[in-house]
């Protein structure tokens, strides 16, 4: 029985993640349309929802071209790495008190480890394409993601101190007993949110693929479903980061009783996905050196102060 539930959760997670990523392709553009005062995709099916399907069919039907000057194996392997790493990350996300794939006592670190392995996708994609724009994109991605990983991990340490565990189930349970961590760790939330956007390299921090400057960055040479995999990985990353924010800072499955627990989790995750899309609609892309100096000169000190104050409070209490 127990095992059956786990398998069901795994299947539901896979379907939810892939389906969610597919629908997000349409949903993001539609929402951007609303926020930027234009119709957005509205022709295929009701509200244009058929666009998601049309887009996927288009991606599959396109010519899958591997450049003759590219390193064939890494070129093919690179797009899969991000999807694999992101899907592994979903293994530690708890949907309710009982519904989760696994409750590792290193859950939070496992999530951080998987996001850091996802860097290889962008990096190897840029390296193997043998194209200078792709190389620029890969270099930018490496520097950006390694830098932002540092405070992404550090910003969560305040939460770990307060809950005394890396396990995500324990972290949510702590929030059930006390307040949500958004109240006790607002600075940690702020840093994690920004680092999360940088880690999933979405706008406004999509410098690895900044299309005004370096064509399409690391996926310049990619076409068809290989490009689709990069896009899928990006959307999976978006969903994963949103669900992590919901779990760590907004009480995960906690909520009033009139809705079942997983719905609260899904609702909060959805709200954060919308927020990320709003950021994309509202904020322009910074320059690359601004991004890096903002990271090291503002975010890192902020995180360390947060860590220091939280530690002092924990000791004093």
């Amino acid at each position: 029985m127990e095992e059956l539930v786990i398998y069901l959760v795994i299947i539901a997670t896979l379907l939810g993640a892939f389906g969610g990523a597919g629908v997000l392709v349409w949903f993001e553009r539609r929402l951007l349309g609303f926020w930027q005062d234009r119709p957005g995709p509205n022709r295929v099916g009701p509200f244009g929802i058929g666009l998601a399907v049309a887009d996927i069919i288009k991606l599959f039907a396109k010519d899958d071209w591997i450049p003759p000057f590219a390193d064939r194996f890494i070129f093919t392997f690179a797009p899969t790495a991000v999807v694999m790493a992101m899907l592994m990350g979903f293994a530690v996300v708890p949907y309710s008190k009982e519904l989760y794939v696994t409750d590792l006592n290193i859950g939070l670190l496992f999530f951080l480890g998987m996001t850091s392995l996802a860097v290889y996708s962008v990096l190897l994609g840029g390296l193997s394409s043998n194209n200078k724009y792709a190389l620029f994109g890969g270099l930018r991605a490496a520097a950006q993601m390694v830098s932002y990983e540092v405070f992404m991990g550090l910003s969560l340490m305040g939460v770990v101190m307060l809950s005394g565990s890396f396990s995500l189930v324990d972290i949510v349970n702590t929030q059930a007993e006390n307040v949500w961590f958004i109240i006790s760790q607002p600075l940690g939330f702020f840093v994690f949110l920004i680092a999360g956007i940088a880690e999933s390299h979405r706008l406004p921090f999509d410098l690895p693929e900044a299309e005004h400057e370096i064509v399409a960055g690391f996926h310049t040479e990619y076409s068809s479903m290989k490009f689709g995999m990069f896009m899928l990985g990006e959307y999976l990353g978006l969903i994963l980061i949103s669900s992590m924010i919901a779990t760590i800072f907004f009480g995960g499955w906690l909520g009033p009783d009139f809705l079942p627990a997983p719905f609260w989790f899904l609702g909060k995750t959805f709200a954060f996905i919308c927020f990320f899309i709003l950021l994309r609609a509202g904020i322009p892309r910074p320059r690359y050196d601004q991004l890096m100096s903002f990271g090291w000169k503002v975010m890192l000190p902020l995180t360390l102060v947060n860590l220091l104050v939280t530690g002092a409070v924990v000791l004093w209490m």
């Binding site: 670190l109 480890g113 850091s116 990096l123 390296l127 890969g138 270099l139």
Partner: peptide, 22 residues
Amino acid sequence: AILEILIYAGAIMVLFVFVIMM
């Protein structure tokens, strides 16, 4: 185990690849 992935595979080796790219 997770530190091995997080620090060696996820950060130090990324820097190595970074240098190789350069």
